[in-house]
Design a protein around this nucleic acid. Structure first.
Length: 595
RNA sequence: GGUCUCGUAGCUCAGCUGGAUAGAGCAGCAGCCUUCUAAGCUGCGGGUCGAAGGUUCGAGUCCUUCCGGGAUCACCA
């Protein structure tokens, strides 16, 4: 990397020329702004405190010294306190030589021996996946891929919330209203059917409450005493006791849901190395809480409920076990964390969970520390922002929840329509065309969701937001397809460019900017891993595609008369295509050969 | 009320640990296909970076206060 080499040279210069020992991290380069000549810029202001000189004079001295010290510097210029360095073309060309014909551009820099477990998705079994889950799933999957590309072991896990009162509600409604309906009979996905049952329960429950209120009950009393909720609570108790009939129904309906989820996950292109179920972890959580109570880390209230007092850390008291001994969300999360650590002995446990749960994870980590779990320091909440619609948050009551399956269908359908309007894909056989439309629609969706900084709340407009032009997934795909088209033609006309025999040429501005971007990839990958941000990758591939398109626009490749320049341009094109393909794949986006 | 967050062009978003005159896309307008895929490229217009102070040679970026959104503080998950 240029920067490392130059840093080294600078440290030498400061030491020899000015008797100053500078810390390497004090030196930072930035890209030279396009209006000035140069590739990298060193800002000299920070050094003026140590070396009392006029900034321009110092900048010139450093520039001269760098030229003497490092052959890769071709020239320099100084504007105010900014030292702009022009890197020799040979440096970029040499870098290219070393990276030709690559399909993989990963690096093994970041914590090679570190094991990371990353949890994402975390669905409830009473509701189908929606837009919010899409962001979660894509983010988690992509961050895992990015971490893998930087080296280190990464395991993807899912935690299914498969127990609790909400599942009992769906079960009860199925018993009462479904008349034996199954996904096969109804012809719907299992998760959708169970979701419908949940809604039906809610309707019937509300009706009961209304009736009770009309008969003179107060609203809150009605909510507690309605027969349906009583039945659901009874069912939950039976579940906890292991009642075989309840368990059988529970297993059957959850099975339907999992089949449905699998379809959605597969379509989204995400996967897991392991799936945890809350029903398998909450007992361990309970046990840990009781151990904590014995150790005096927690305390018991008069009613028998167990709490953790976090007031001395600026937080509140947190309930860990109800008075009746049943567990809450926190209980099972303690168990899940322990189980996960035992399974993987991971250095880092990343939870991809919405920022509405910041408090929860803060508390979880503190509680685990109090339990003496040193690995709690490795817990990291990848807290992402909510997805909002133009009219605000999604609300199931108002029917504004955007269903994941439907959204994917719409995206692909839009891709088909757009392609047909543009007259694309006609020459393809129907099955290939369908695959292409699917590919494009999913790319549009994934890029749209991932290009935004994960931490930020993002807006999604179902009718207008998804575009196929400009800063979008299909734009990048299109760039790739165009390059591939050229390479096919080059191949057909017997041109060979897959050689490391690269002539020294003078780079033209657009050739150089594409090449420099390619060179900068490893920085981007590292940065994306450290900040857990696929958005950086998304922005990078867009930047690269745009830059390449500009180059492509007014520079002939196949028709370039100069043979060594033509060779270089073919190589540059090939490398760009490989890079786009590799980087996009970290976002779950596939690059088509044609479109 | 306590804690945490966010506020950049009409809209959606970039802006690496503070660096030069704050950038893209969409939308609008005007151009470019007898030449490698026009899902492309070029140009134009569009900003008090929520406001005011402060730190600094230098602030969209750091600190304080205020204004305006959001989240959270459940025997929900």
């Amino acid at each position: 990397m240029v920067e490392e080499i130059l840093k080294e040279a600078l440290l030498n210069i400061f030491y020899k020329g000015y008797q100053q020992e500078i810390k390497p991290e004090a030196i930072s380069f930035q890209q030279t702004r396009p209006e000035f000549e140069g590739d990298l810029t060193l800002v000299v202001f920070p050094f003026l405190k140590l070396i009392k000189k006029n900034p321009e004079v110092l900048a010139r001295e450093i520039g001269e010294a760098l030229i003497a010290e490092s052959p890769m510097i071709q020239s320099y210029n100084v504007i105010k306190g900014f030292l702009n360095l022009v890197i020799h073309d040979d440096y970029w060309l040499n870098w290219m030589k070393g990276n030709l014909n690559k399909q993989v551009f990963n690096q093994q820099i970041l914590n090679e021996n570190e094991t990371t477990v990353i949890e994402y998705s975390s669905p409830n079994t009473n509701k189908p996946l929606h837009l919010g889950h899409i962001r979660n799933n894509l983010l988690g999957w992509s961050v895992a891929e990015i971490l893998r590309a930087n080296g280190g072991k990464v395991f993807k896990v899912n935690l299914v919330n498969d127990r609790g009162i909400h599942i009992c509600k769906s079960m009860l409604a199925w018993q009462k209203f479904a008349e034996g309906k199954t996904p096969e009979i109804a012809g719907v996905k299992g998760d959708k059917l169970v979701g419908e049952m949940y809604v039906q329960f809610d309707k019937a429950y509300k009706a009961e409450q209304k009736l009770l209120v009309e008969q003179g009950s107060k609203q809150d009393e009605a909510a507690k005493s309605a027969p349906l909720i009583k039945e659901a609570q009874q069912m939950l108790r039976e579940w906890e006791e292991g009642d075989s009939q309840v368990r059988t129904l529970w297993e059957k309906m959850n099975g339907w849901v999992y089949e449905g989820f699998d379809v959605t996950y597969k379509r989204l292109g995400i996967d897991f190395d392991q799936i945890y179920y809350e029903s398998q972890t909450y007992l361990l959580g309970k046990q840990l809480v009781l151990e904590g109570l014995e150790k005096g880390v927690f305390f018991k209230k008069d009613d028998g409920s167990i709490w953790c007092d976090l007031t001395d850390e600026g937080l509140d008291e947190k309930l860990l076990l109800r008075a009746d001994g049943t567990s809450v969300y926190m209980t099972q999360d303690i168990g899940t964390a322990q189980l996960r650590y035992d399974d993987y002995k991971a250095d880092r446990l990343i939870y991809v969970v919405g920022n509405e749960q910041n408090y929860h994870f803060d508390v979880l980590q503190k509680i685990l520390r109090r339990l003496g779990k040193s690995w709690a320091d490795g817990i990291e909440h990848l807290s992402y922002g909510m997805v909002e619609l133009p009219e605000g948050k999604m609300k199931s009551r108002e029917g504004t929840v955007v269903d994941a399956d439907e959204l994917m269908d719409e995206m692909v359908e839009t891709a088909r329509k757009m392609s047909e309007e543009l007259g694309k894909g006609r020459e393809l056989p129907a099955s290939d065309a369908n695959q292409l439309f699917d590919n494009i629609g999913m790319a549009a969706l994934k890029y749209y969701m991932l290009r935004v900084d994960p931490k930020k709340t993002m807006q999604f407009n179902p009718t207008e937001s998804i575009d196929f032009n400009g800063n979008t997934g299909p734009f990048v795909q299109y760039t790739h397809a165009r390059i591939k088209s050229i390479l096919r033609k080059a191949e057909a006309s017997q041109l060979t460019w897959k050689t490391s025999d690269l002539q020294s040429i003078n780079l033209m501005p657009k050739e150089k900017s594409v090449l420099v971007l390619l060179h900068n990839w490893s920085d981007v990958l590292l940065q994306a891993a450290m900040s857990r941000s696929p958005a950086l990758i998304a922005n990078y591939i867009y930047e690269l595609a745009k830059e390449y398109n500009q180059f492509y626009q007014d520079n002939p490749i196949l028709k370039e008369a100069d043979v060594s320049r033509r060779l270089f341009r073919l190589q540059l094109s090939e490398l760009t295509a490989s890079m786009l393909s590799y980087a996009a794949q970290l976002l779950g986006i596939k690059m088509p050969e044609k479109m």
